[in-house]
Design a protein around this nucleic acid. Structure first.
Lengths: 262, 262
DNA sequence: CGACTAGTTGAGGCCAGTCAATGTTGGTGG
DNA sequence: CCACCAACATTGACTGGCCTCAACTAGTCG
């Protein structure tokens, strides 16, 4: 659909950093890009490290990659080499069924790590796609493991990260297995809201980066159902929708929906 | 429901190894119980370790616990301290929704590891319950992390283990989000079959350790639906059911169901 | 033997899917 | 700037798969 999807398999990332004339500016960008100066370090794997570890942590990053909307970070089946940290922007992960259908299995925001499903089999199990202009840090997993052997705190952070991914998925399983449609959407919206809040953005007004179809796929619903729910929520005064722009108006009622008032 | 469930919270594991008179026999059991002699070491975290590491690995296990059917290994909210390896028997993990409902989130067999969802928050996110008489090894996580810092191979095994749990859950999400009931059950049965095979048991005849209700909960279905499906599969000659005993008769058709012949 | 739990089967209802028509938005090129 | 197109979204009518409710059976255990 996008130019970038014509990239050959195994070379999914778009070329970055061709030699530039503006070296000074470029250098400045490089510095600002360092982990130790990154605004996301509180959310990222490096949270809570001591000064000494922090000074070495930039070595974990083998490179940074700019992606346009629709670009692929990695594909299912690609050889696993690295984790990816989202510096800015957002991505979806997509799992593929045997019969060719696919499902959005995750929505990932800045500071979050992609690719953890690849460690177990040496191949990524899902595909990660940028939902907007996005920048990711490439973290070769061999470096991560080496660093983990030296820094107890970092090692534990890594384990927490993997574990949190396990419990995140556990929550989605609950959602898919036990909840009715309106509850699923309410959970989704409150989760988004909370994650925007944690990043310093407005928790009651935000832009959906996924289409109705993608949201539906993530929630185990059809796009028409998602659309109808948005309309109903709006009619009931729970929120205001205009295309992808959502404004939460009655958080209490949304939470009541989630808690299962019925 | 079971006597053991009357155990107080925080002391969920049933008391083991009261001092015994038959010390010789007891000692013999202890030796046979060692990781280095365990029949499951191919499946467990210790796979592929060198002799030197293998000789130290028993130190990872702080104890072994025998559980009866219905006993709890850990509860959601309990402080996370250890992972548990199933030596024999099987367990289910149960996730709890905010409104008190619960869902079976996993079915775990010998050689598999429980408790990985607790690392991220220092509290277990789910409850693990024995489905039959079961023995588990207790692996204090601090020892696991310490060992990981010393043994590259073990460290990687641990990461693979956590990652495989992530992709396992990813597959269940796909199942819950995109598949119709008959497909879910077919996937479930073939998965069981494969895992029994990997353990040297018959892959076409086995005993379900979960009730129809538990299976339904795991698959996002009601118990009546599960029951009806078993009956239909039997009528169609795909398998033979008698209560919990299942005999797969037409694996090819089951696979066709999974692949989505319709 | 009665009480209990697990499982089976049937009838009917509802939530979400399907199919289809129409409206809206955003990017592109004349 | 506007016309055009494609992708995205909304809404309605109808269908169907699974749930709900309920009755009944089989096996287990004190």
């Amino acid at each position: 659909m996008q130019v970038a999807t014509t990239l050959s398999v195994g070379r999914t990332l778009r070329d970055t950093t061709p030699p530039r004339p503006h070296t000074v500016l470029f250098e400045l960008n490089r510095i600002r890009a360092a982990c130790s100066a990154c605004a996301l370090r509180e959310i990222c794997v490096v949270e809570g490290l001591d000064v000494e570890a922090m000074s070495q942590i930039d070595e974990l990053v083998s490179g940074r990659v700019r992606l346009h909307k629709g670009d692929t970070v990695f594909r299912a089946g690609d050889r696993f080499t690295s984790l990816y940290a989202i510096r800015s922007g957002s991505c979806k992960t997509v799992a593929l069924t045997e019969d060719g259908h696919d499902q959005v299995s995750g929505y990932h925001m800045s500071g979050e790590i992609l690719g953890t499903d690849g460690i177990g089999t040496d191949r990524y199990a899902s595909q990660a796609v940028a939902l907007e202009d996005t920048e990711v840090c490439v973290l070769p997993f061999s470096r991560i493991e080496a660093f983990g052997r030296q820094h107890v705190r970092f090692q534990h952070n890594l384990h927490r990260l993997l574990s949190r991914e396990i419990s995140r998925e556990g929550k989605v399983m609950l959602l898919l297995g036990t909840m009715l449609a309106e509850r699923r959407l309410a959970v989704f919206l409150l989760d988004l809201s909370e994650r925007y809040r944690a990043r310093g953005y407005s928790s009651c007004e935000f832009v959906l980066r996924m289409t109705r179809e993608e949201i539906g796929s993530y929630l185990g619903l059809k796009l028409e159902t998602v659309s109808r729910l948005f309309s109903r929520f709006q009619r009931d005064g729970l929120l205001q929708v205009q295309g992808r722009i959502v404004k939460l108006l009655d958080r209490a009622s949304l939470k009541r929906l989630v808690a299962g008032a019925d």
